[in-house]
């Protein structure tokens, strides 16, 4: 029973991070390798807002989430905007550089030591019991946030006018521009949403058990989840996260805890050999020539 809860929590973490990769890749074909760092930035922003609003933890959290959204937009406007129309590889390398830059900056500002935003906010993390299993409050919150994020992203992309435009821009940017859709607006929106979801994951993980500057490794481990699902499918990312998380939790439990960092990439390699385009990646080939 505890295993199921552990799988669920880990899958939620991976899924929430993976949807950020998927959002940006889907609209602009750019792989955001700074996603892990942007996620960590969210956690550091909580530290900053916690000292600003020290009496109101909810306000501090809301401010941190909002600042993450803004920073995603800033990354697009000041960095990635110049990359539109250039080679995708150049854009990907830019995200790598951005990741290194963010990591360097946070070490400069907050030093490399372990941080506990929950203490800074003055909130506790009680353990809740479900039958025989237990789950910490913030982990439970993470599962809830992931579920509601996916639900709202699904509704937004399927029925929202801007969601429809996002899908359209991802399929054929030229035609989208000709239909009056402002591609820069769409890309900026994707970066904002992606950074927002990533930062939510980072913040909730940090509240649960603290964090260090090595947090982006988790972001990198969520990448196989996105790829297994097919990189351009949100449903795929959800399933991919579940597969990777199950493999990881079960192998840690039955074989060796040290396997934790290896398993996601083993799953990824196995997937790439069998089905390089991922579980749901084929849908792109629907086009008739």
């Amino acid at each position: 029973m505890q295993l199921v809860v552990n799988i669920l929590v880990l899958a939620s973490i991976y899924a929430l991070i993976a949807c950020g990769y998927v959002l940006i890749y889907r609209v602009s074909r750019v792989l955001n390798l700074a996603h892990g760092e942007l996620m960590m930035l969210g956690a550091y922003l909580v530290l900053a807002t916690a000292s600003l609003f020290d009496q109101h933890p909810a306000l501090a959290l809301a401010a941190a989430v909002f600042l993450s959204l803004v920073s995603g937009g800033l990354v697009y406007v000041f960095l990635m905007r110049k990359m539109t129309g250039e080679m995708v590889l150049a854009a990907i390398l830019t995200t790598v550089a951005l990741g290194i830059f963010i990591k360097g900056m946070v070490v400069l500002i907050w030093s490399a030591q372990q941080q506990y935003p929950a203490q800074a906010l003055g909130v506790s993390n009680p353990s809740l019991s479900i039958g025989v299993a237990s789950i910490s409050l913030w982990s439970a919150a993470l599962v809830g946030v992931t579920a509601s994020t996916y639900a709202s992203l699904f509704v937004f992309l399927r029925f929202g006018r801007w969601g429809m435009r996002m899908r359209a821009a991802g399929q054929n940017p030229l035609l989208a521009a000709q239909r009056g859709i402002n591609l820069h607006g769409i890309y900026a929106l994707a970066w904002c949403l992606s950074t927002l979801t990533g930062a939510c994951a980072g913040i909730l993980m940090a509240l649960d058990s603290g964090f260090t500057v090595n947090m982006p490794v988790i972001g990198l481990k969520a990448f196989p989840a996105a790829l297994v699902g097919g990189l351009d499918s949100l449903g795929g990312a959800l399933l991919g996260a579940l597969i990777v998380a199950s493999a990881e939790v079960l192998l840690i439990y039955y074989v060796d805890p040290l396997l934790s960092d290896v398993v996601p990439f083993l799953v990824l390699i196995a997937m790439l050999i069998v089905r390089p385009w991922g579980l749901f990646g084929t849908r792109e080939e629907l086009d008739r020539v």
């Binding site: 359209a168 054929n172 035609l175 239909r179 009056g180 859709i181 629907l286």
Partner: peptide
């Protein structure tokens, strides 16, 4: 507004969505 020579519709959007996406 241009109707291009090829790649003139969004292939993964339904007909109704193709009509709702334009600004």
């Amino acid at each position: 507004t241009l109707v291009p020579e090829r790649e003139k519709v969004f292939p993964n959007l339904t007909v109704a969505e193709n009509l709702m996406a334009p600004v």
